[in-house]
Structures are given as structure tokens and as C-alpha cells.
Simulated scan of single mutants.
Amino acid sequence: MSQAGPKLPSTPSQTVGPYLSIGLPWEDGPTVVEEGTEGAVWIRGVVTDGEGAPVPDALIETWQADPNGRFDHPDDPRGAVPGFRGFGRCPTNDDGEFGILTLLPGAVPEQAPHINVSVFARGLLNRLVTRIYFPDFADANAADPVLNSVPEERRHTLVARKTEDGYRFDVRLQGEGETVFFDV
């Protein structure tokens, strides 16, 4: 007959945060293109939790095609616009705000112009994945299979709003008005 050993505490769960500011950001992170690039726009927003409070220690990561619908990646042999890396990374500030300077993406085959977004934050075991669509491309948005897979009453959470110097895209992690996230 074996005897049970002492009851040990469970291992604490692991989350993505709160140490994002130590290892993930880098100097060029929020600038997908250099300031002063013709056609550059800011995408700004706030990450909020289920209560609507800002999340001051989140990180937004973006990946997108260039204005011609091409990627700066070996899997896209067409190549992107020179100097356009298509990737951005921005931590939120104390008010949960982030900003990415980029160019509007072009359409990729059978999809409307969009930016892929990953959200990292405290309390998340895995990143959350969403997309930013733009109101300027209403016809393409109407035909986009990914956007159309989202219930119509929730699609607005994926469409940025036009601002004076670009677009606003807020991320609500849960609760009323929660941003649509994709299971990838």
C-alpha cells in the first residue's frame, strides 16, 4: 500500500505579461514606415479590459501587406515596396494607448485590405488575433470572406474609424463591445 506524500501547491499559471516592456518592444516598433513617408497614416487606439478600464501593459503587434498587396516575406516572391517591412509592435502607455505609423495595405487575393493584429497582455495565456479593416474599402469589405464570417452586428469592431491623421482602432478584450478575435 503506498502512502500519499505531502499535498503540494499547484504550479501557478503562466501568462504573457506583465513583463512585455522588458523584452518585446524595440526602437522602430511602432513605425512600419519612417515618419514623413508619403501616404503614411497613424493607427491609434486604446486597449481596454472587460470593465472598460485601460490596459497599461499590453502590446499590439501588426503584420500587413504593402499598398500593392505584397508582403516583405520570402513566401511572397513579388517583394514589397522597398523599405516597407510590414511589421509593427507598440506597447500601450499608462492610459492603454498605442499608435502604429504605416501605409494603408493593398488587397491580397480574395481579401479586402486589412492589417493582422496580435494582442499580448497580462492575464492572457496566448495572444489574441484580430484584424483591422478600413471604411475606405467598403466594396472590398462587403466581399471579404473573413469579415463576412463574423456576425453582422459585430463586424463594426473590426473596422477602424477615420481620423484627422489616420484611423482609430480600439481593442476591447471582453465584455460589451468586445473586439472580434479569431481562433488561429
Results as ranks from 00 to 15, higher is better:
Glu35Ser: 14
Phe98Met: 05
Phe98Tyr: 15
His73Cys: 09
Trp42His: 14
Val41Trp: 04
Pro113Trp: 04
Pro113Asn: 04
Arg154Gly: 03
Leu125Glu: 13
Pro30Asp: 09
Val119Gly: 02
Arg44Ser: 15
Gly29Trp: 14
Arg161Thr: 05
Gly106Lys: 06
Gly88Tyr: 12
Pro74Gly: 12
Glu27Ala: 13
Arg78Asn: 14
Leu59Arg: 10
Gly23Asp: 04
Thr130Leu: 08
Val81Arg: 11
Gly36His: 02
Leu59Val: 15
Phe137Cys: 02
Trp26Phe: 15
Leu158Ile: 03
Val150Cys: 01
Val129Asp: 12
Gly106Leu: 09
Phe98Gly: 09
Ala40Leu: 01
Ala112Ile: 05
Asp57Leu: 03
Arg154Val: 00
Thr92Ala: 15
Leu125Ser: 12
Glu97Phe: 09
Arg131Asn: 11
Thr92Leu: 13
Ile115Arg: 05
Val150Thr: 07
Phe71Ser: 11
Glu153Pro: 02
Asp72Ile: 05
Thr37Leu: 00
Leu158Met: 04
Arg122Val: 08
Pro25Lys: 11
Gly52Glu: 05
Arg70Lys: 13
Arg44Asp: 10
Leu125Gly: 10
Gly39Cys: 02
Asp144Cys: 15
Ser118Tyr: 10
Arg70Leu: 05
Trp42Phe: 12
Thr31Pro: 02
Glu38Thr: 00
Ser118Ile: 05
Leu103Arg: 12
Arg122Cys: 09
Ile132His: 06
Gly69Glu: 11
Tyr133Asn: 04
Asp28Ile: 08
Pro77Ile: 10
Leu147His: 03
Ala140Asn: 02
